[in-house]
């Protein structure tokens, strides 16, 4: 069995985690740029982070036969100061494609962009990063807010995305739950379920959502990071689906084929 974890923050994980993931069948990860648990004090801090994501992390993953891909952006939590956010966003094009000076060749798109507290400042920078994705023809990975802010934030984000020319089939909206998944799919976007203790969905609920909303345009990820999270959440969800009697083809579809199909829209994604 093999699987892809399409959203995991490996910079926050130990090398042991790569080893355990490889042993559990992980052959590729994609790592969106996000908040590090504290606010960075300068744009230079992001520059170093982007280099870590494009240069260092792929080498660490490769030791265990795992391919590492990434997404760049300024995350919504640090995007509340538009001047600062623009300084960070202006560094991204050089990392994006083969014409960029700093390209590691593993950047799949812009992400994880979105909203955190649903503020006007966050929305301005979200719109500017959507425009960046439009200009450079990049895939988009979207972070939706937590808990009580998720429903409103998801709708605001979808409205901002729908105002762009980006095909919704090139956008994945992550951290969906039972109250947001159907709107996301109905509007033509891809949906990601995050298997994260307490604030997102459990493997059981992820299996429930697939049973209720189908297995098209949907994937699951661990979003493993510096918080209480589980880098083996995807294989655990695979087991949950199997113990209910779902076919191996269905399990493979949501944990391998679907991520491969979505990510292959980027010329920088291919599995070796």
């Amino acid at each position: 069995m093999k699987y892809i974890d399409p959203h995991i923050h490996m910079v926050s994980r130990t090398t042991d985690d790569y080893q355990r993931m490889a042993q559990a069948g992980c052959i590729a990860v994609t790592e969106p740029a996000f908040w590090a648990g504290f606010d960075r004090s300068s744009a230079q801090g992001f520059y170093d982070y982007f280099r870590q994501l494009t240069e260092y992390e792929p080498k660490r993953a490769a030791q265990f036969g795992i391919q590492h891909f990434t997404w760049l952006c300024i995350n919504p939590k640090e995007a509340d100061d538009p001047g600062f956010a623009r300084e960070v966003v202006s560094m991204i094009p050089d990392f994006l494609n083969s014409k960029g000076e700093l390209c590691g060749g593993n950047v799949l798109g812009i992400g994880e962009i979105g909203l955190n507290k649903n503020t006007k400042n966050e929305l301005i920078i979200l719109e500017e990063q959507i425009a960046l994705a439009e200009t450079f023809n990049q895939l988009v990975l979207v972070h939706t807010p937590h808990l009580e802010d998720k429903l409103k934030g998801t709708r605001l984000i979808m409205d901002a995305l729908s105002a762009s020319t980006i095909d919704p089939g090139r956008i994945l909206i992550d951290h969906v739950e039972e109250h947001t998944v159907s709107e996301v799919l109905d509007r033509g976007f891809w949906a990601g379920m995050t298997l994260y203790p307490d604030t997102k969905v459990t493997p059981q609920r992820a299996a429930d959502i697939i049973e209720m909303y189908g297995d098209e345009r949907i994937w699951m990820n661990s979003a493993g990071d510096w918080g209480c999270s589980d880098p083996l959440a995807v294989p655990k969800a695979r087991l949950e689906m199997r113990r209910r009697g779902h076919a191996v083809t269905t399990v493979d579809k949501v944990t391998f084929d679907n991520p491969q199909q979505f990510l292959s829209q980027s010329p920088n994604f291919s599995l070796s």
Binding site: D80, N118, K120, E122, L123, D149, K152, E177, H179, R205
Partner: peptide, 24 residues
Amino acid sequence: QRAGRILNLLSDHSTKLPQSADGM
């Protein structure tokens, strides 16, 4: 749809958009 309805009940349905998250 109990799970979806409970999540809806626990959601912010206001339309206000604060300028900044500063101090929130």
